[in-house]
Design a protein around this nucleic acid. Sequence first.
DNA 1: CCTCTCATGTAAGACGTTACATGATTCA
DNA 2: TGAATCATGTAACGTCTTACATGAGAGG
Lengths: 192, 192
Amino acid sequence: VSIKFAVLGLLGRKELHGYAIKQRIERDFGHLWTANYGQIYPALRALEAEGLVTMVEQAQPRSPTRKLYSITPRGRTALRRWLNGPTAKRPVLRDPFLLRFTFFSQGDADAALRAIDEQVAMYKAQLRGRREALIGWRRKDLYVRLASELGIELNAMMLAWLARARAEVAAAEGSADADAAPPVRRARGGRR
Amino acid sequence: VSIKFAVLGLLGRKELHGYAIKQRIERDFGHLWTANYGQIYPALRALEAEGLVTMVEQAQPRSPTRKLYSITPRGRTALRRWLNGPTAKRPVLRDPFLLRFTFFSQGDADAALRAIDEQVAMYKAQLRGRREALIGWRRKDLYVRLASELGIELNAMMLAWLARARAEVAAAEGSADADAAPPVRRARGGRR
DNA sequence: CCTCTCATGTAAGACGTTACATGATTCA
DNA sequence: TGAATCATGTAACGTCTTACATGAGAGG
């Protein structure tokens, strides 16, 4: 249900075609939602069938024909109702790594360390990308900017937690492992 | 795929029946995963069919018969392989509120404020519950404790962000709204 | 008497992911 | 020549949620 409205919300700002919608989702809120063509194209058809958007084909000289979708007045009403309505449900993190993490006491000693380092690398790369993306939102939509900032804070917090977790795990599992992997990173310092 | 292993991981610690598994999931990592009977019971059957767990019926004098599941040696091997294996995929927050939030500039002025206050109330209640749950984990499993602490930090961070977001939104939308709802909460103070 | 907790489960449907199919253009 | 980007889509398959069905005992 949410994706239909996310698409409608994007069309509320600007007319777009399916391919562009996917790009926007990734750029604007890839940290808090994902969507793929298997969801986007059917959603657009459904919205059109309900009369919330209209479609116009747009031929182009040297690339495939686009299908441009625009929001209708009825679409705006539906969007506003969704925005004013109640919050569907409380969020869960649903992070496969963290789930696995809670069971590491049953695994091999160093598997935990390796997994943590993997995560650290991933979050560092992500953080860089997000900080760059933020610049584009600096003077634009207040809400998008705030959500984007949350993504960055979250990311930084995860890195801080991972550093702490790594230290505790290494300490608990005999100090031999502690320097098998790179010494406890100053990564956290980058946060304060 | 993750739920099967989450169940297996729980059984790796202690033999359990389906109903108890659900309770554990809620208590131990309700913040990072959810599961319902529609997933748990079929998962148990599947694990049994694969020979990773065994089941024994356990009649009780004055309550329904339980089906106690225990992990097998093959189950332990499979669990360890999962723990040592690669991390499936990067996480997304996937919070319906935040998704909606990014579109509030297209909605009614005060709907955003109301929605934020709703979220604040929810997170405050949740934070209380989690702090209590943590006490039970203090001297138990290191990994579970760390994950639990992350849940609390996350929760606190969300509250801090919501307070900031509220202030910025109120400021942007004319100061009339700013005191229609409770004055900008000192909630953030509780964090530093 | 009614609701809550314990305890098992199933079925239908909503939602999401992955892989495939098609085809032109651009860039190394 | 090969890969990436633009652009559309579908089918199969997983996963998750919701709602129902059953039934006993405990406590207000």
